[in-house]
Design a protein around this nucleic acid. Structure first.
Lengths: 152, 152
DNA sequence: CTGTTTGCAAACCTTTTGCAGAGCC
DNA sequence: GGCTCTGCAAAAGGTTTGCAAACAG
């Protein structure tokens, strides 16, 4: 699992410095975007427009490169839903693993994390000797609301 | 869950006909590729070279279009691992949900399905009232072999 | 016979790369 | 001061689209 106890901006900055990454303006802006929104998963264009509010010259290539770096460092994760990539902060609170319940009908994505997932993954770990670092669970189906609407 | 009891070629053909899809040569070749390899997940280029062994003019656009159609009909699923899309047959045996254990080190992908997953998902279903149709569970980490090698 | 499907090539969109200049430590 | 990081523009990939011909039912 991730080495960080706390995904606060300061911790992340310290962690990156320790591993030899230079803390530049573009990287600070990006880190701030994630730590201010620990439960949001952003697609690329949303991220771009957010970071450009703070630095209107923020380049596309730079954003891609910084995202890759954060993924490499296990600070954020990517998850592809319906052909769109979503980036989000990995936090110990979320156990670095959580479920996305994706409603095929209303396209809404609910996030859920809880001890059942940890339990379940420990089972997999024990059975397969697989040392889990990060996981993404995407479940496609129909959500409660849509099912109830369909009955009417 | 999927309406088909059995993902045999004949059943799939009948199912598609019923829903108004014309059974063409390119579609038969693609269906055969999946039903002959129910446990394989193919990337696009592997699929293309396989189907072109039977029809050397099989077009790229046609393959994309046919894959989209099969996804739409819930016959196959896509799963993105490390930026590559993998297509595979959905079978009731697999419970339409299984786990991919992806080793970051050797890049090997182990597939695993079992009652624990069904159990786990039923839990989610009950707790959230979410009607599950298809799910993909990707777990990134280090596999047993690589961990043992690292110790040496 | 009619509407759908196909292959081709061009268009598209997302992501990556090369490079000269700017910035961190 | 040295080496990394950045923005730009061009290139590269992967996927989609428009069209005329071929084909399924």
């Amino acid at each position: 699992m991730i080495e960080l106890e706390n995904a606060s901006l300061q911790n992340l900055v310290d962690f990156l410095k320790k591993t030899g990454v230079k803390i530049t303006l573009t990287r600070l802006i990006l880190l701030k975007t994630f730590t201010n929104n620990p439960d949001v998963h952003f697609d690329f264009n949303s991220l771009l427009s957010i970071v450009r509010k703070e630095d209107s010259n923020y380049g596309i290539a730079t954003l891609y490169r910084n995202l890759d770096m954060l993924i490499e460092k296990n600070i954020i994760s990517v998850n592809t839903i319906d052909n769109v990539k979503y980036y989000e902060l990995i936090t110990p609170q979320k156990g670095s693993i959580h479920i996305h319940l994706i409603c095929k009908h209303c396209k809404n994505v609910e996030e859920y994390s809880g001890y059942e997932i940890i339990q379940f993954l420990n089972l997999i770990k024990d059975k397969y000797g697989f040392d889990i670092n990060y996981g993404s669970i995407n479940v496609y189906g129909i959500c409660k609301k849509c099912r109830e609407k369909a009955k009417e």
